[in-house]
Amino acid sequence: MRPPRQKWLLVLVAILLITNIATLSIYWFKKPDHEGGPGHGEPGNREKRFGQFMVDQLKFDTVQEAAYWKLRDSMMAIQKPVMDSMRSSKKRFFDLLNEPGATDSMLTARSNEIAIMQKKLDSVTFRHFQKVRAICRPDQLQKFDTVIKEIVNRMTPFRRNRPDSTFNKK
């Protein structure tokens, strides 16, 4: 096989090869900072991003930010046992799949346990957002209300790619 007569063709192929290798190495070695990438499963990672989102969107000053993180940490401490209980209740609910004689009353009882935990969780979350709203200045309240609507949309099922989503706009 003869090498091509035109040196520029060899140079062009070499440049393309180097560019492709560089591009692939960037994708392979860069640590993703988006959902689904490494670190996504770390406990608290999602909550920290939501917390930082609130701070950034509302443009809290340093005093407000300190108060916000204190409120958030307090809320998380209250939420954790409730979420653990809900997880256990859901596990017991779906464990009924292994029981051939599972009755409607058993399903109702177990689903009621889940509902009780969900109500507690929603109440804790509501009270938290009430406290956060209370630390906002009057000029931040409209933005707070918009951000809360978006957060509620993200917390509810069937929220994929809503056109009105501020989280989807970057």
Results as ranks from 00 to 15, higher is better:
F50G: 02
I78G: 03
S111K: 08
K80R: 13
S89W: 03
L58H: 08
P32R: 03
L12Y: 08
L58N: 06
I15D: 02
V13Q: 04
Q79M: 13
P157D: 14
F50E: 13
D95C: 07
R87Q: 09
D61M: 05
S85H: 14
A67K: 15
R159F: 06
V13N: 03
T103H: 03
P4L: 05
V82D: 05
N161M: 14
Q6C: 05
F167G: 01
E113T: 04
T166I: 15
V55F: 01
S165V: 14
I151T: 03
P157F: 10
D84H: 08
N20M: 08
T125A: 07
F129D: 02
L71G: 04
K30V: 01
K30H: 06
I26L: 04
M76F: 10
V55D: 01
D122G: 14
L17W: 10
S123R: 12
L141Y: 02
D56L: 04
N168F: 13
Q140K: 11
M106S: 10
L121F: 15
T103Q: 05
I15W: 07
M76L: 13
K30R: 13
A14Q: 01
V152T: 11
V13L: 10
T166E: 08
I151H: 03
H34Q: 11
A77I: 09
A102K: 09
G36T: 06
Q142E: 13
A102W: 00
H128L: 15
N20F: 06
G101Y: 09
K70Y: 05
Q6W: 08
I18E: 00
Q130S: 12
G36Y: 04
G44A: 12
I15V: 14
T103G: 05
Q140H: 06
F60Q: 01
T146L: 15
Q142S: 09
D95K: 09
A102C: 05
V55P: 00
M1H: 13
K91P: 00
E65N: 09
N161C: 06
M117F: 04
K7F: 13
W8D: 11
Q118F: 11
A134N: 05
Y27W: 07
V132P: 01
I116K: 10
G44V: 05
F158M: 15
A102M: 03
P138W: 01
Q64C: 04
R87N: 07
K131G: 01
T19Q: 06
T62R: 15
V132S: 03
E65A: 10
K119M: 13
T62F: 13
A102I: 02
K70H: 12
R137M: 03
W28F: 10
A134Y: 01
T166C: 02
R127Q: 15
P100Q: 14
H128I: 04
D104H: 05
V55Y: 00
G37S: 11
N153K: 15
W69S: 00
Q79G: 05
M117P: 00
K131F: 02
T103L: 05
G39I: 02
K170T: 12
F60E: 01
K170F: 14
K91C: 02
V63S: 11
Q6D: 10
N153V: 07
D95W: 07
G51P: 00
M1W: 06
R87A: 08
L12S: 14
F53K: 10
R46A: 12
E113C: 01
T62M: 10
S105E: 15
I116G: 03
N161I: 14
K119W: 08
A109P: 02
S25A: 08
A134D: 01
K31T: 06
Q140T: 13
H40Y: 11
S89N: 12
S74I: 02
V132M: 10
